[in-house]
Amino acid sequence: MNNLQLLLISNSTMPGEAYLGYCKENIAQFLGDVKEVLFIPYAGVTVSYEDYTANVAAALNPFGIEVTGIHTFSNPINAVESAKAIIVGGGNTFELLSKLYDKRIVEIIRKKVMNGTPYIGWSAGSNMACPTIKTTNDMPITMPISFKALNLIHFQINPHYTEERIPNHGGESRAQRLQEFLTKNTDIEVLGLPEGTMVEVRDGKATYLGEYSGKVFFNAEKAEEVNHQDDLSFLLK
């Protein structure tokens, strides 16, 4: 765990801001001297991999960060093995995981990151760091061979977490959906990451970052609010 370097972000864009506007400085600071990153755009469904990669590059190039899409390599396994840092973008989590299995790089990425390669993800990319993708918000538009994800951390993340309710809407709230998960999965915690927030894992410590309060669900009956700079290292145990 002490080798892990993770930056797991809820979402890519806040209303009225440029793409990665609120978190690009966090990304640059997290990467430090690492200036070459491998970007995995497989979660993109309605955007081409080329356009997706170009959007990320446009946000990070001003920091001297060179972004290369994995789709430009003839051998994705070699691309991961040679990567200095890995960024996994958001989109559809089921599509993303399906593609990672199809390319046979799930275990390759896991091994690489567990050995200290920095990993950054947002939305579906953050879901991918969890043991499974069972706490994604996405529609299962495709069927991966397994729900098992990279298992870089021992807790689940729910990106875009909100406690807002749509007036006159009878569907379950996000908290109710997570309560369903926790009822069926009693041995794992869930971190609800509202938009505009993230969790950084480094040197065996996990830290909550962002101006909005998040929530740790310990089980179906117990949850606690978390705030900027709170230590979440207990979730790594």
Rank of each mutant, 00 (worst) to 15 (best):
residue 95 E to Q: 13
residue 96 L to W: 08
residue 97 L to W: 10
residue 97 L to V: 12
residue 99 K to D: 07
residue 99 K to C: 08
residue 99 K to E: 06
residue 99 K to F: 10
residue 100 L to V: 12
residue 101 Y to E: 02
residue 104 R to L: 04
residue 105 I to P: 14
residue 105 I to K: 10
residue 105 I to N: 11
residue 105 I to F: 06
residue 106 V to H: 09
residue 107 E to T: 14
residue 108 I to S: 12
residue 109 I to G: 04
residue 114 M to L: 15
residue 114 M to D: 04
residue 116 G to K: 10
residue 116 G to W: 13
residue 116 G to Y: 09
residue 117 T to C: 13
residue 121 G to F: 05
residue 122 W to S: 07
residue 124 A to E: 05
residue 124 A to F: 13
residue 124 A to H: 09
residue 127 N to W: 11
residue 128 M to R: 04
residue 128 M to S: 09
residue 131 P to M: 06
residue 133 I to W: 07
residue 135 T to G: 04
residue 138 D to K: 14
residue 138 D to Y: 03
residue 139 M to A: 06
residue 140 P to I: 02
residue 140 P to E: 00
residue 140 P to F: 03
residue 141 I to V: 13
residue 143 M to I: 15
residue 144 P to Y: 01
residue 145 I to Q: 12
residue 146 S to V: 01
residue 148 K to I: 11
residue 148 K to V: 13
residue 149 A to P: 15
residue 152 L to C: 10
residue 153 I to M: 09
residue 154 H to T: 11
residue 155 F to G: 02
residue 155 F to M: 03
residue 155 F to T: 05
residue 156 Q to N: 10
residue 156 Q to S: 10
residue 160 H to M: 02
residue 160 H to Q: 03
residue 161 Y to Q: 07
residue 161 Y to E: 00
residue 161 Y to F: 15
residue 162 T to L: 06
residue 163 E to F: 05
residue 163 E to P: 07
residue 165 R to K: 15
residue 166 I to D: 00
residue 167 P to C: 00
residue 169 H to Y: 15
residue 170 G to F: 15
residue 172 E to A: 08
residue 172 E to N: 07
residue 174 R to M: 14
residue 176 Q to R: 12
residue 176 Q to P: 12
residue 177 R to G: 08
residue 177 R to Y: 10
residue 179 Q to E: 12
residue 179 Q to H: 11
residue 180 E to Q: 14
residue 182 L to T: 10
residue 183 T to I: 03
residue 184 K to H: 11
residue 184 K to L: 09
residue 185 N to S: 10
residue 188 I to E: 07
residue 189 E to C: 14
residue 190 V to D: 00
residue 190 V to S: 06
residue 191 L to T: 04
residue 191 L to N: 07
residue 191 L to G: 07
residue 191 L to P: 14
residue 193 L to N: 07
residue 194 P to I: 03
residue 196 G to Y: 13
residue 196 G to H: 12
residue 196 G to W: 14
residue 198 M to V: 06
residue 198 M to I: 05
residue 199 V to W: 00
residue 199 V to T: 06
residue 203 D to M: 14
residue 204 G to C: 06
residue 207 T to A: 00
residue 208 Y to P: 04
residue 208 Y to E: 01
residue 210 G to R: 03
residue 213 S to C: 07
residue 214 G to H: 03
residue 215 K to E: 00
residue 216 V to Y: 00
residue 216 V to L: 02
residue 216 V to W: 00
residue 217 F to P: 02
residue 218 F to D: 00
residue 221 E to P: 05
residue 222 K to N: 09
residue 223 A to H: 04
residue 223 A to W: 01
residue 226 V to G: 00
residue 228 H to R: 12
residue 229 Q to I: 09
residue 229 Q to D: 12
residue 229 Q to C: 03
residue 231 D to Q: 02
residue 231 D to Y: 10
residue 232 L to D: 01
residue 234 F to V: 08
residue 235 L to R: 01
residue 236 L to Q: 07
